[in-house]
Design a protein around this nucleic acid. Structure first.
Lengths: 189, 189
DNA sequence: ATTATCTATAGATCTATAGATAATGC
DNA sequence: ATTATCTATAGATCTATAGATAATGC
């Protein structure tokens, strides 16, 4: 159709957005390409003019979601406000909205089972976020924290959010979130 | 066939073991019943004489795996040896053997997306383990730690293990594990 | 004229069921 | 005689491809 020059890219973005939401809410393996394309108001046939394979989509979605989250993290982490980040991350509203929430909390254990290229894309794109956490922790502690140290704090946030999501009783789940905030601040002291 | 009275139960156990390994290694949605039954040296047809549905299998496998892990945890946690538990949990060999490792690290984010009955089975069966952690932390701190406090420590362990599994570079992954151990001990102080 | 979209389909796999087969305690 | 197992199959869905259709810049 020789569409407008930006048309292709706009559609691609719509597919990536749809896949990002559906993968995080229902898991990668649970969402077929037909459902992803329907969420983007398209049919399956069009998928392969935009992506080489489902795994290529998974990689791109992950990178994109991680980068989008990075923006949010760095905005919040500026000036060393780790407390605010922890409170927002471990909030009931984040727990209850996995589709638009942190991709690491939703997908890390699935990423671990994906092909090496996908894991590399994940790890490489998490580095800026982990470095931002490390810098923030360093400031609080008054001594250098490594990226690995930041991974432990981030692991606490993501792991605790997952436990809260898997806990059906609301009060118990809320209590897990609150204990997670206290723990995160203790850790970064 | 009017088999030996214990025959049915033995076979059921074999299916549960097979499913436990395959679910933890490849994810629940990635493993079809045909593959699970083949791993147990059976064919698909037999599945429904043992379980009502795949979801019923998922619930039973989870309960069983969590209980098996609980044994290991309580043995190790006795006498307040949190350091040993953290070192074993965040060891390269645990990272590299998800099939036989902690079910929570492998499956919590998937459990969060399962039906409420499955999440209830998960949460209820995690309680003894979390209480054992809470008791151990209480001893170390010299003041009462709640189950939610234990969830934060456990969330740190599971979340950090997941990050280490998703990190393809070995040195970086090892560093994450080590930082996780330090963080766990710091948290429980 | 170009190309993103559509419909249709291949071939594999998924969960679940039906009915035949085979193993063994009475 | 009982029942766990098998083979076979239904019907839905999965990833991926082929070829027709339609939209728009030249």
């Amino acid at each position: 159709m020789r569409y407008a020059p930006e048309h292709n890219e706009v559609t691609r973005d719509r597919i990536l957005d749809a896949a990002g939401r559906l993968f995080q809410e229902h898991g990668i393996d649970a969402m077929g390409l037909a459902k992803v394309m329907a969420e983007a108001d398209l049919t399956v046939g069009t998928f392969y003019t935009h992506f080489k394979s489902k795994e290529a989509l998974v990689r791109e979605v992950m990178v994109r979601s991680i980068q989008a989250r990075h923006e949010a993290f760095t905005r919040a982490l500026r000036d060393g406000h780790l407390e605010g980040v922890a409170r927002t991350y471990l909030s009931p509203s984040h727990r209850d909205a996995p589709a638009t929430g942190c991709p690491a909390a939703a997908l890390t254990s699935e990423v671990a089972r994906r092909p090496r290229t996908t894991r590399q894309a994940f790890a490489a794109n998490m580095e800026p976020t982990l470095d931002a956490f490390a810098e923030c922790i360093s400031k609080r502690r008054g001594k250098k924290a490594s990226r690995a140290d930041a991974s432990a704090v981030f692991g606490l946030l993501a792991g605790t959010l997952q436990l809260a999501r898997a806990t059906p009783n609301r009060e118990e789940s809320d209590a897990i979130l609150e204990a997670g905030v206290r723990a995160a601040l203790l850790l970064a002291k």
